[in-house]
Computed example of a mutant assay.
Amino acid sequence: MRITTAHGIDESSFVPIGGIDQWVSIRGEDRSNPVILEIHGGPGASNLIHIPRTRAWERHFTIVRWDMRGAGKTFSAHGPSGQGELTLSRLYADALELTDHIRARLGVPKVLLLANSFGTVTGLRLARDHPERYSAYVGTDQNIIAGGRDSSAYDALLTRLRGAGKHKQLSRLTALGPDRTAWSPEEWSRYAKTVVTTDPLTYDTMKTVVIRSLWFSPLHTLRDLRAYLKGMTFSEQLGPQAMSLDEYAEGTAFDLPVFLFQGADDVLTPPAPARRFHDALTAPVKDFALIPDAAHFASFRHPDHFLDLLLTRVRPVVTGSAAKG
């Protein structure tokens, strides 16, 4: 975990963002490497727990990991009453403010935007609106919210429950209906948890990757871990806010390179809608890849494969040269 290289960086602190202090970690072995800003998912699921799994990424990139309001150490420091406004618009504004802080702190004109899972809702909007701040966009576990027109993941869940004879769960989920804009935060959370626990590969990834990373994180105390889980519950209110978005209506024209790397067997954010969006968008460079033997959390289940995608497909585009050995 230690970074001892002469030109490395390893600093973590609270940074004033949007009126509250928010936790920001900056790590990398060479400050001349491209800078990545991670937008974590959940909502409320900090990526700090995955640093040991993604340690190799820091040899090729300087990575900024941010516990946004409602998540991780930011939630732990201020509690529920100290998070301020928790809306998608506020997170978007926070991300822009943090981006400018990073650009000034590290002396770079642009940063590479890497968003995963629920973070892709904010990440895609940042990329679309601000090519002057970001060198490229990489989305993984990419959400494509199409104004309620795509219910394929919901339909697949009902089919899976029906086939497994899970009649009580089937009844509860059928009662919700496919219109996610009508769901409460609790219903949105129940749906997501049912998807995760009823798909063997996703459930295995949750147990062996996410929960294991959470439990054995060297950067968190037991108190931090309790706060981590409470932050995720607190942040569930963000889920339904996103369901009325329409990525196609917001725009498919991007003025920066766009990369979508999706788990081939993801049932929470299936690859098919991401592929359709990729095919519809225009960008200076665009690329799509499936990560085999991966459901949701693809980049953390197979961090070496994901790093290879970053080095062979993304880094040459943003730097104009191949990665260093």
Rank of each mutant, 00 (worst) to 15 (best):
residue 110 K to Q: 15
residue 263 G to Y: 00
residue 298 A to I: 03
residue 285 V to W: 07
residue 92 Y to W: 10
residue 194 T to S: 13
residue 273 P to H: 07
residue 216 F to Y: 03
residue 39 I to H: 04
residue 46 S to T: 15
residue 304 D to S: 14
residue 35 V to L: 11
residue 81 S to G: 09
residue 292 P to G: 04
residue 303 P to V: 15
residue 221 T to V: 09
residue 105 R to L: 10
residue 261 F to I: 10
residue 301 R to T: 14
residue 110 K to R: 13
residue 6 A to M: 01
residue 324 K to E: 09
residue 104 A to K: 09
residue 8 G to E: 10
residue 111 V to T: 15
residue 276 R to T: 05
residue 240 P to M: 01
residue 142 Q to A: 04
residue 62 T to Q: 08
residue 267 V to C: 06
residue 308 D to I: 05
residue 70 G to P: 09
residue 303 P to A: 13
residue 86 L to P: 02
residue 318 V to P: 02
residue 45 A to Y: 08
residue 195 V to G: 06
residue 90 R to C: 13
residue 285 V to R: 12
residue 208 T to C: 01
residue 130 H to R: 13
residue 83 Q to W: 01
residue 116 N to C: 10
residue 304 D to G: 10
residue 252 T to H: 06
residue 263 G to K: 00
residue 302 H to D: 14
residue 126 L to A: 03
residue 119 G to H: 02
residue 309 L to P: 04
residue 57 W to G: 09
residue 148 G to M: 08
residue 268 L to Q: 05
residue 271 P to R: 01
residue 236 E to K: 07
residue 68 M to Q: 15
residue 30 D to G: 06
residue 264 A to R: 15
residue 28 G to Q: 06
residue 294 A to V: 11
residue 152 S to A: 07
residue 295 A to Y: 00
residue 14 F to L: 11
residue 312 T to Y: 00
residue 185 P to V: 14
residue 129 D to K: 12
residue 11 E to R: 12
residue 40 H to E: 12
residue 87 T to D: 06
residue 36 I to C: 06
residue 72 G to P: 00
residue 163 G to P: 08
